[in-house]
Design a protein around this nucleic acid. Sequence first.
RNA 1: GCCGACAUAGCUCAGUGGUAGAGCAGCUGUUUCGUAAACAGCAGGUCCUCGGUUCAAAUCCGAGUGUCGGCUCCA
Length: 660
Amino acid sequence: MNRSGRRPLARHTSAPPSIGVGEGRWDRGSRPLVQPWDERFRDSREDLMVEDEQAIEVEEALPDAPERREADELMDHGAAGELGPMRHSAAHVLAEAVLDLFPGTKLGIGPVIDDGFYYDFLLPRPLTPEDLPAIEARMRESIAADHPFEFSEETPEAARAALVERDQPFKVEIVDDLAAAAERDGTPMPPTTFYRQGPFIDLCRGPHVASTGKIGPFKLLGTAGAYWRGDEKRPMLQRVYGTAWATQEELDLYLERRDQAKKRDHRRLGVALDLYSFHDVSPGSAFWHPKGQRIWRTLESSMRELQERRGYQEVSTPILVSERLWRQSGHWDHYAENMFIVESEKQLFSLKPMNCPESTIIYRSKLRSYRDLPLRFSEFGRLHRNERSGTLSGLTRVRQFIQDDAHVYVRPDQLADELEAMLDEVKEAYSWFGLTPRFAFATKPDKAIGDPALWERAEELIHATLMRTGVEFVTKPKDGTFYAPKIDIYIDDALGREWQMATIQCDLVMLPERFDLTYIDEAGQPQRPIAIHRAIYGSLERFIGILVEHFAGAFPVWLAPVQAVVVPIADRHLDAAEEFAGVLRSRGLRVEVDGSSNRMQYKIRTAQEQKVPYMVVLGDREIEARTASPRTRAGEQQDPQPWDEFADRLAEETRARTVV
RNA sequence: GCCGACAUAGCUCAGUGGUAGAGCAGCUGUUUCGUAAACAGCAGGUCCUCGGUUCAAAUCCGAGUGUCGGCUCCA
């Protein structure tokens, strides 16, 4: 079974093109295909859940073995549903067109991806968006000619010779690698296959449609630079992305959905809703406006409430810290390229990129007893990481951010329970937003510090806990931090991108060993605790950015920066409007009165555009009865109700943190 | 960091070598209105920065910065 066993719903995904099929990664296509904000969601939710579980099962059954990657490079993406062969065929036609327009082009690879395909080329000059129409036109000619796809099989030697002859060094490399892999594994080299359509022939394993005329409506979406084989030390090729569908309607729907996704982009909505902004005086760092800060503080206080209930103690540590600490922790050797270094009076300092090492200073401030553990220190720490400029993106990839971080020190016998409690914390917190977390187990990376035996033990402990709790998870080999294996928690944003949110790291190495942490056991002997690093929101910045897209700016009542706008119909209703707002504010609700001289319709439109959950109209009728007429942002007009009743209801929705 | 594109009013954008524009937002006045846009007027610019070409540059060229689409990276 491959990933093609999906329903036609796949055509509704709005995921951007992505290769997304590395080892240990989720295949994007296997994730829920309808997002919670879709109208269809309510009706189809159950189906989707089942589908998702099946998908996970399927994905886990897929090998991470080298042959799969080789297959990817040979474009064997029969995986991508019934549209797969057609899209892959479109990639061939794309290559044919480019080779025709730019003689001498060296071909890279041309796989199928979510919703489309791409092909990589080494060209005499970079492509620009203006080149795409000409390429599309040439593609249409090939499609109109309806060339059959002809299959042929060669011995590896003959194939190699043919590719050398055609001066296609990247293809030669692929054949050589296949041969090397076969030799390494002691398996016979499979015959090498080619497909020809019209004048164009390409090394490929297929499958294809019967002829170019079977290729449906398509559109080239853009160009980008991409390193050959994803290696930044190798040449940068020109990648052309495209999409193709069975019918024009589906293509139009896909393009329309792409536009819709842009409209909920958190960078756009942040400006429209006056939440935050960015300025070139501090690239990669957000300026938080009052309404954005309001959301921030609501998230923060919710997490504080959870943490206090669950036995955490909040601490705060300095941002500017001597290199001595970072040398001791290993960051200076393993993370320096991401640290902002500051010099003062011949001493080097760094803006902290993580809170953990400083947490140990508090741990070590006194002698700890086995009775003190678990010791749970939480910290909303402000971190700086010097991310490469090209990677910055809105709130989702920033240089300065605040984590809802915590470091929990446990005895070995307490670890399993504590990890389980943390998984539960994650589920609780995510339920406030209607988000469903997915779990991944990330193991020891190549660049790791500490005793391998400790790593092995930490990985065993995490794995055992995951198995015991019965949560679904995938394994991401070598994706751990340099000091700990971890459980990462992922969700998808509105554009179908996968985001790591929470992380739970089981550290037997950095904090315990490098900082020589101890507690005194029952026998009076010093023992080594285990340190668990965890963050539930992850970065507050990234979390808010994803929430903006998740809700398209229409935050649930409990989180909305303005929960209700009071709309007096005429000036004579202003005093009563203020009085009513006072009733709401006295219950801690966030309310604005629109006292402008605009007409009521205009005030409602404004509140609607700001995605305020409730608009409450006050006119002669309401004031006389001391009632309010709420209208929801969904357009539902509710019956007039007494002021206190409405206030109580809103307060209860806020307290319960209900979504919708 | 790499490849490409882009940068004009608070926002969205028009303006391809000859006096800087529109809509929305803002301000002022009129209007006091029953569930998604009342009317009129006014104001608003280092055309990202620096340098070059030219009689003349928002416009052409170069460098820098930032942003966007990707690649790489993501403890």
